Amino acid sequence: MTRNLMIILSAGGSAALLAGAYIFQALGYPPCAMCLWQRWPHVAAILIGVLALRVPGRFLPVLGAGAAATTGGIGVFHTGVERDWWEGPTSCSGGGGLEGLSGTDLLTITGPRVVMCDQVSWELFTLSMASWNAIASFGLMICWIIAVRLSAGSTTTGSSRTV
């Protein structure tokens, strides 16, 4: 294994998860607000990965691990909201308001669809998309950490040791 291979796997994993989210959206599963929050750290991880392939050192892989941990943490929080372990944001949970919608929006069939953060729209093996994102993201965090460790053994010219 090399540092760059781990970076490619880590950033590529975020790209795959992000692509999967957009595929589900295209299949008719619109995201809630917390689902959208989980996407931003994946975007950051992809950009960090592109930069980290060009810039040697440990700093960028550490940031990548942080991005993966952030989306994983949001996924765990979202899972807890879905399972009623704790309250979610009032803006997208069962008690949330509809202040962003007009009367016309509420009365028309074609108006915007309100997607609640505390409702599971799809699951596999009793785990929601938020749960799967958390599991995969923490796996990607481990890949980033391996890249950090491999960066510690690389020289200033950017070469990486193999394991």
Results as ranks from 00 to 15, higher is better:
A147T: 00
G158H: 11
L51Y: 02
G103V: 05
G100C: 02
G100Q: 07
S128P: 01
L63C: 11
V43K: 03
C35N: 10
G12E: 09
G28F: 05
G100L: 08
A44K: 04
Y29P: 01
V43R: 07
S160L: 06
W40I: 10
I46F: 06
I7L: 13
G80D: 08
R58W: 13
E99Q: 12
W132F: 14
E87G: 02
S10D: 08
I135N: 11
L124K: 05
W37E: 09
R54M: 14
R161Y: 06
G111A: 02
G95F: 00
V62H: 10
A16Q: 00
I74Q: 12
A19W: 05
A147V: 00
C35P: 10
G97F: 01
R83D: 13
L18R: 06
F77C: 06
G72T: 01
L63N: 11
Q25R: 15
H78R: 01
G73P: 09
N133P: 08
G95C: 00
R149F: 08
A152G: 10
G158M: 05
R113M: 12
A147K: 01
E82N: 04
T79V: 06
M129V: 15
M141W: 09
L63A: 05
G75M: 07
E99A: 11
T104P: 02
R113A: 14
L51D: 01
M116R: 12
G57M: 10
T70H: 07
V76W: 04
G111C: 02
G153M: 12
G94K: 11
T104C: 06
R161K: 15
T156S: 14
V163E: 03
E123F: 02
L63D: 09
Q119M: 02
G20V: 00
E123V: 00
Q38A: 15
T90K: 09
I48T: 13
Q25K: 15
G153A: 13
G20C: 01
W40N: 02
Q25V: 02
L9R: 03
W132D: 15
T110R: 07
W40E: 08
A130E: 05
T126Y: 08
G12N: 04
I135F: 15
V76S: 06
F138W: 12
N133T: 14
I23Y: 11
S10R: 03
I146Y: 04
V115L: 05
A69D: 13
W37K: 13
P89D: 15
C32G: 13
G97C: 08
A26S: 14
T162Y: 07
T71H: 05
M141I: 04
I48Y: 07
L101S: 03
T155D: 11
G20Q: 03
G96I: 00
V76F: 09
G97Y: 06
D84A: 14
M141E: 11
Q25G: 13
T157I: 08
A44F: 07
S10G: 14
F138C: 11
G72V: 00
G12W: 01
P61S: 13
A152S: 12
L36A: 15
M6I: 01
I74Y: 10
G66C: 07
M34W: 10
A45G: 12
Y29A: 03
V163R: 13
T71V: 08
C117N: 07
C117Y: 03
C117R: 08
A16N: 00
R113S: 12
S14G: 08
P41V: 04
R54N: 12
T155P: 04
G64V: 02
P112V: 07
G66N: 06
V120F: 03
L127W: 06
M1K: 14
P89Y: 09
